[in-house]
């Protein structure tokens, strides 16, 4: 994510000021920055979550005010980072909005919150045959749904029911490598079945560095310890390997991962 903080370094804002900036509705750039800041700084102020939830309301307007939409997108991300369980209901409703980015960010945040109540809604976004899930939308490179973030969310939530597994599995054959990776990542987490790991390790050798980077983070998120040597050896910058290994360390709590991280500093 771009770090807007450097522009605002002088003078540094206090949490109380940031809260006030989010509450006011005159200056959208102040609100936008405040919504980002509260997540980034993991604010625990009692007003933080209520104000972030309020910032979602303009998404139900018609037409949606463009700048308020940008503030709301940051609020969705912040609610995920803050693991605001009382945002579940509102975020689930947003999964049905006619706005790809809103659905994408809401799915991701529901995953971070580990919202079990959202599993059915998320699965619904995965429905449809290959002709539907491979269909590129007119005028953009996007597909019908934000499949990567939905698949990631289902993995993070961790409900490994038969129906969830059945709906995820076809995506391991999707034409887009990062969607295949997200599906394998989710299935590896949900089932613990190691057969989903080799496709990820293989994609780590892909020619496109963007794909290698995405897959590296997927492997880290699975917490699958045998991936450690492959992550260490990947042709990717150390900064990103450290992020992937952070995922592996936090899931596995294995000190081998910490030693590997020390070696990449």
């Amino acid at each position: 994510m771009k770090d807007p903080s450097t522009e605002n370094l002088n003078p540094p804002l206090t949490e109380a000021q940031v809260i006030a900036n989010l509450r006011q509705t005159e200056d959208f750039s102040d609100q936008y920055y405040a919504a980002w800041w509260l997540g980034r700084m993991r604010s625990r102020h009692p007003e933080t979550i209520p104000l972030l939830l309020t910032a979602l309301d303009p998404l139900h307007g018609n037409p949606i005010h463009n700048e308020r939409r940008a503030v709301a997108l940051n609020a969705i991300r912040a609610l995920g980072i803050l693991q605001a369980t009382n945002a579940e209901e509102k975020l689930r409703i947003l999964l049905k909005k006619n706005d790809y980015s809103i659905r994408e960010e809401s799915a991701r945040s529901l995953g971070m919150i580990q919202a079990q109540s959202a599993v059915l809604d998320l699965c619904e976004l995965l429905s449809g045959g290959p002709e539907e899930t491979e269909q590129i939308q007119p005028g953009s490179a996007k597909l019908k749904e934000p499949y990567e973030s939905v698949l990631e969310a289902l993995g993070a939530i961790g409900v490994a029911s038969r129906s969830v597994i059945i709906i995820i599995t076809p995506f391991t054959k999707h034409s887009r490598p990062l969607i295949r990776a997200s599906a394998c990542r989710a299935l590896l987490i949900l089932t613990g079945d190691q057969k989903w790991a080799p496709p990820l390790i293989e994609l780590l050798q892909h020619d496109d560095p963007l794909i290698r980077r995405g897959v590296l983070l997927d492997l880290g998120a699975t917490g699958w310890m045998p991936a450690l040597p492959a992550i260490q050896a990947a042709a990717i910058e150390n900064s990103l390997k450290l992020v992937a290994l952070r995922g592996l360390a936090e899931k596995s709590e294995d000190t081998c991962v910490l030693d590997a991280m020390d070696g990449l500093l």
């Binding site: 952070r246 360390a249 936090e250 709590e253 000190t255 910490l258 991280m261």
Partner: peptide
Amino acid sequence: IKVIRLRATL
């Protein structure tokens, strides 16, 4: 951040 807590504990 959990990994920081893990590393500091170690």
